[in-house]
């Protein structure tokens, strides 16, 4: 479904006071692929380049070099139809919703834009995506800041789903949420994958989430792939020290169970 080949992207950092500028290689030659209907997790610490890859795949940024193939074709977001296929879910739920748009308007916008709908069909469409993401209908008249973090994330997901994407990129969609809400949203993602067969690239720094959600995992370290394979295999016998460290750092992991008293 998705194939990323030798992806590279660097940023120029210009100092405010010192006049020298330097280049940071955010992503430095990354290859991996995502099978149709599966969830692949992209893990790594902050600064490992995982968000940059996600934004490149979603077409929010242009890579310096390398290729992103979707269904065997070079990625292209220039037409409405092609843009619709790949959607992206943000970590910052408050920031990714226009503060002046009610939930209903925010959800109607993509529907109106992509499908020619009558007013009644539009209403049904909004009701449908709200239902499928577990949002109560009366929330459609609320503004984003009136919602809880979990409800907002559901709106963001609903908005992406409204476009009936084939591929979903989720950039740390639960890390800013409360534990119990995290579980609810993760369950939503897992249901989406099982029921509608949506292919996903799931970015996270939490290996516990990877274990419970994804089939394949790409471990990133400073812009390069440290390890890549099936979740079971990678977790059972990590090949690199870095993956080992990540696994050992998890609270509740066997190695981390030391007691202070």
């Amino acid at each position: 479904m998705l194939k990323v080949i030798n992806l590279k992207k660097s940023y120029n950092i210009t100092g405010l006071y010192d006049h020298g500028s330097h280049t940071v290689k955010a992503v430095d030659g990354v290859d991996f692929s995502v099978k149709k209907g599966s969830i692949t997790a992209l893990v790594g610490e902050s600064g490992s380049g995982k968000s940059t890859i996600a934004r490149c795949v979603a077409g929010l940024e242009t890579p310096d070099s390398g290729e992103i193939l979707i269904d065997g074709m070079k990625s292209d977001y220039s037409t409405k139809e092609k843009r619709r296929r790949v959607q992206y879910i943000f970590q910052d739920t408050l920031g990714s919703l226009n503060p002046r748009m009610r939930v209903g308007e925010a959800l109607a916008e993509p529907l109106k834009y992509h499908f020619e709908l009558t007013a009644a069909a539009l209403r049904d469409g909004v009701a449908d995506v709200m239902l499928s993401t577990g949002l109560r209908p009366e929330l459609s008249s609320k503004y984003p800041h009136e919602l809880s973090g979990g409800q907002r994330q559901r709106v963001v997901i609903a908005r992406a789903l409204a476009m009936k994407p084939q591929f979903l990129v989720a950039d740390e969609p639960v890390s800013s949420l409360d534990v119990s809400v995290q579980a609810q949203i993760l369950k939503l993602f897992s249901t989406l994958n099982e029921v509608s067969g949506t292919t996903m690239l799931f970015i996270t720094h939490d290996l516990r989430v990877v274990r419970s959600l994804a089939q394949d995992v790409v471990v990133l370290q400073s812009g390069r792939v440290a390890e890549y394979g099936q979740v079971e295999a990678v977790f059972a016998s990590p090949k690199t020290v870095y993956t080992r460290t990540l696994l050992d750092s998890i609270p509740g992991a066997p190695a981390a169970k030391k007691k202070g008293g």
Partner: peptide, 13 residues
């Protein structure tokens, strides 16, 4: 509700 690292299980909510 905290996903477990040692084995895969159903999502509890």
């Amino acid at each position: 509700i905290i996903p477990d690292i040692s084995f895969k299980k159903e999502f509890k909510v």
